[in-house]
Design a protein around this nucleic acid. Structure first.
Lengths: 240, 240
DNA sequence: CCAAAAGTGTTAAGGGTACACCCATGG
DNA sequence: CCATGGGTGTACCCTTAACACTTTTGG
């Protein structure tokens, strides 16, 4: 199921906001690893975040949503802006031109796409199991990668991931945003695992349980018999 | 002491990053009022935040610094990015064109300046007594206005002020950023006044004092004899 | 019965809140 | 001595941290 991308949008003056792009940092969780969604562009470029340009008629948020769907096949996801990146050298000319020369359209040598632009960073958290990453025609692959084991990324995308992660950590408690990363039902250990992975630090099991339960946002379901020689944990789900 | 602004920078293709601007929300404090710095543009336009465009060679932060100095005469101030505004209709065409037609240069009807652009919001806090607001050639005045008594502002600048204020409130405790708004020495009541004004709520005098002193960031100086028939308060200054 | 993991209780420390109380100042 | 406002003490509650204890599960 290949996504279509209208390459005409890359042409200058045909409905794109010059000098502005959006990049999406999408977090998922699997195998006790915090993952981020990356594209492998065709050619020998480093991996990059799914990003793209803003159409004249859409808001930045809408652009982020559309770009994420077109480039990675991920839709219906709540994205939040976290920072805007605007260092003058953030799009290194060589890599940059090499990348856009892989696109099979004519570009004027003076096209703004080949020059500096500003990028607005968006991030989101999603259930790993519900997403089928699908690369667009410009990319060889679209896959999840361990946030703590990233190889070098294109442009300033490494900095973007770091800053998104920092934002995620700071909002974890207040916005309870971490729950988006888990499936419908989960054990308390699953949740603690997630928290520990995001925060990159160990938490005390007993206090974590009390803290979460005191929030009164979880519904306790039946026990989960694992077959192991120990007490079976309860399953939980989010209250509506 | 009139600031100079090089009007050639408004010309298309002469070194500006298309579609991108910065706007600065500068907070000050005086007479128990939280103030924000606004320009009154020439013509009948609503008041606006000091803002401007980004040169191809400078970072967004540098652009914010420069723009603030050029348009309001405020320099050497630490600005922090708080949000990027990108609604497609944020620069209403009519007001927008009217404003840029007051600038005494030729603009192509299709110039991006007359169309939609994205604006990166920066905010800062500064000692009211140390700033001499100086309007640029495009403005009749540059002055402080009570944040809680603002008349309607141009474009989406009202939303910008609100969001900057929200950011300020959330960082008040953790970053101790409020102290920037006070002069070198101050009383505990001055500081509490400031906090209450920013947070828009009353605080308990005794607890506020203890909380601040427990931070161990203040140096207690001699008392301040006010001439009033009551105990003289201590003066404090920030430890380095 | 035992090991392992889940669940609950208990205690201490620290911060925030509310308020009572004492201290200086000038009339 | 009094009114006024500045400064300190105290009791209470809630949250967090640390750890002991009990319960469940299958071998």
């Amino acid at each position: 199921m290949q996504n279509k991308i209208d390459l005409t949008i890359f042409r200058h003056g045909t409905g794109l906001l010059p000098s502005v792009s959006v990049d999406c940092v999408i977090f998922g969780f699997h195998d006790s690893q915090l993952k981020v969604l990356l594209l492998q562009p065709k050619g020998s470029c480093n991996k990059m975040l799914p990003g793209g340009f803003v159409q004249l008629s859409e808001s930045l948020n809408e652009a982020a949503q559309r770009v994420l769907q077109e480039r990675a096949g991920v839709k219906e996801i709540y994205l939040e802006q976290f920072y805007t990146f605007g260092a003058p050298n953030r799009t290194d000319d060589t890599i940059h031109k090499r990348y856009f020369n892989t696109i099979p359209i004519d570009l004027d040598e003076n096209d703004w796409i080949l020059k500096r632009f500003v990028s607005i960073g968006y991030y989101a958290l999603t259930d790993f199991t519900k997403v089928k990453p699908t690369p667009d025609v410009l990319s060889d692959s679209c896959d999840w990668y361990d946030v703590y084991q990233l190889s070098e990324l294109a442009f300033d995308h490494q900095e973007m991931v770091e800053r998104a992660l920092k934002t995620l950590r700071s909002k974890l408690d207040s916005d309870l945003v971490g729950f988006n990363l888990l499936p419908e039902v989960f054990t308390m250990q699953d949740l603690q695992n997630l928290y520990e992975t995001i925060l990159n630090e160990a938490l005390l099991r007993t206090n974590f349980q009390r803290k979460i339960l005191n929030l009164n946002i979880l519904e306790r379901l039946e026990k989960k018999m694992t077959g192991a020689a120990n007490k079976a944990p309860y399953l939980y789900k989010f209250k509506k």
